[in-house]
Deep mutational scan, measured.
Amino acid sequence: KYLVLALYDYQEKSPREVTMKKGDILTLLNSTNKDWWKVEVNGRQGFVPAAYVKYL
Rank of each mutant, 00 (worst) to 15 (best):
K1L: 13
K1S: 11
K1M: 13
K1F: 14
Y2V: 15
L3G: 04
L3C: 10
L3K: 11
L3M: 11
L5H: 06
L5K: 09
L5R: 09
L5P: 00
A6R: 02
A6K: 02
A6G: 03
L7H: 03
L7E: 05
Y8K: 13
Y8H: 12
Y8P: 01
Y8E: 12
Y8L: 12
Y8R: 11
Y8V: 13
D9Q: 03
D9H: 05
D9L: 02
D9E: 05
Y10C: 02
Y10Q: 01
Y10A: 01
Y10V: 01
Y10I: 02
Q11Y: 14
Q11A: 14
Q11K: 12
Q11M: 14
Q11C: 10
K13A: 13
K13I: 08
K13G: 08
K13F: 05
K13T: 14
S14E: 09
S14V: 05
S14N: 12
P15C: 10
P15F: 09
P15H: 12
P15K: 11
P15A: 12
R16N: 15
R16S: 14
R16Y: 15
E17R: 04
E17L: 06
E17W: 03
V18C: 08
T19I: 03
T19C: 06
T19E: 04
T19K: 04
M20P: 01
M20T: 03
K21S: 10
K22R: 12
K22F: 05
G23A: 03
G23T: 02
D24T: 06
D24I: 04
I25P: 02
I25E: 04
L26Y: 09
L26W: 01
L26V: 08
L26T: 01
L26F: 06
L26A: 09
T27L: 15
T27H: 12
T27D: 06
L29V: 12
L29H: 06
L29N: 02
L29M: 08
L29D: 01
N30E: 15
N30A: 10
N30I: 08
S31R: 12
S31E: 10
S31F: 10
S31M: 11
S31P: 08
T32A: 13
T32F: 10
T32M: 12
T32D: 15
T32Y: 10
T32R: 11
N33R: 09
N33T: 07
N33D: 15
K34T: 11
K34V: 10
K34Q: 11
D35V: 12
D35G: 09
D35K: 14
D35C: 12
W36F: 08
W36L: 04
W36S: 03
W36I: 03
W36N: 02
W37K: 02
W37D: 00
W37Q: 02
K38E: 14
V39K: 00
V39S: 00
E40S: 10
E40N: 06
V41E: 03
V41Y: 10
N42Q: 10
N42H: 12
N42W: 06
G43F: 05
G43Y: 05
G43L: 05
G43N: 08
R44M: 09
R44F: 07
R44C: 06
R44S: 07
Q45V: 14
Q45C: 10
Q45D: 07
Q45T: 14
Q45S: 12
Q45N: 08
Q45G: 06
G46E: 01
G46M: 04
G46F: 05
F47N: 04
F47A: 03
V48Y: 01
V48E: 00
V48C: 03
V48S: 00
P49I: 03
P49R: 03
A50H: 04
A50G: 05
A50E: 03
A51L: 11
A51P: 08
A51D: 12
A51Q: 13
A51R: 14
A51E: 13
Y52L: 15
Y52Q: 07
V53Q: 00
V53R: 00
V53M: 05
K54R: 13
K54V: 15
K54I: 15
K54N: 09
Y55G: 09
L56R: 04
L56A: 07
